[in-house]
Design a protein around this nucleic acid. Structure first.
Lengths: 166, 166
DNA sequence: CGCGCGGAATTAAATTGTTTATTTAAAGTT
DNA sequence: AACTTTAAATAAACAATTTAATTCCGCGCG
């Protein structure tokens, strides 16, 4: 088991051979960083009675109330079934409520309740604070670079999945 | 519209105020990127009969067999109960097995089975390939920068949690 | 020698997340 | 108008994570 792996054959062929060099560490690195972030955020969010994953729903709804589960799922980058169940829990918790759309019977509109509205500020604070803690010691430029790189790899992974040729 | 911020006009004069500026987007960004990564890795890993989260266990065990659940948890950055459950599943799947430590009755040693050993190469390929896909279009330097930044924010979050003052 | 303390592993309970499959309603086709 | 297709939401099954509580075992102390 050698730590250095230079013998990986590139299946794409004409690309740079250096490509897969450090990329091997990318998946573990981002996984662990995200785990730490999720845990930290979860702790902070706990004060509001929320779980990590629920914060985004409230934040988006605070900006635009009455979105459908599908729209929320797309905005948050999760799958529809995930959103359905999360909404169900949050509804039971009293943070939001579902209402049927009058014109289209297939649609469900999600609305923030009074209790949900009251959490918005605290959530914003938690997310912001969590980001600040994580970014401690990093310059503004570095943060922007990180944000840009994260978006890039996300798009790369998404487009790979959608298999959008032509 | 007036919400637009992030101008480069303000230099490092009062970095304190600028600090939380882009950091607010950090948690959502890394969350989504990690989610995409996890999904992609999960698909690739599926060919080996594994789930995302199990790969690291096998990879570490391939390097050093007979580690305890607690050691594995620390190495992978997860909590002990997570490791217990993952090990349980993987044992049921036949990838590894638990053995009691002869000298210390509290310890459990985890060992790779033959089936587990056979997945090592494929896992390495999956992780590497997944990283390459994610890093498509990024220079080697950018990848290293990303890795460094990820490690930094992870350490920031960890040290925040350990709360070791005094 | 007994008894409590601490560490390691596990169990319990709660939630997010994914994939696959099912229901229901709108839209399109013949 | 009836049938088919599509789209949205949901249900079910699996897995990963976390925190809190429990069990088991070794070890020191009285």
């Amino acid at each position: 088991m050698s730590k250095k792996k230079g013998d990986k054959k590139a299946k794409s062929g004409k690309k740079k051979e250096l490509e897969g060099l450090s990329a091997t560490d990318l998946a573990p690195a981002i996984t662990q960083a995200a785990r730490s972030m999720r845990t930290a955020l979860s702790r902070s969010l706990g004060e509001s009675g929320l779980y990590a994953g629920q914060d985004g729903v409230i934040l988006i709804l605070a900006e635009e109330d009455g979105m459908t589960p599908g729209q929320l799922a797309i905005r948050l980058g999760v799958k529809a079934p995930t959103m359905t169940r999360t909404i169900g829990r949050m509804e039971a918790q009293g943070f939001l409520e579902r209402r049927a759309d009058g014109t289209d019977g297939r649609l469900t509109k999600v609305h923030l309740t009074e209790a949900g509205l009251q959490t918005v500020e605290q959530i914003g604070r938690s997310v912001s604070e969590c980001g600040s803690i994580a970014a401690k010691g990093l310059s503004d430029k570095e943060i922007r670079t990180l944000l840009k790189l994260l978006k890039t790899i996300e798009q790369n992974l998404q487009s790979e999945h959608s298999d959008d040729r032509g």
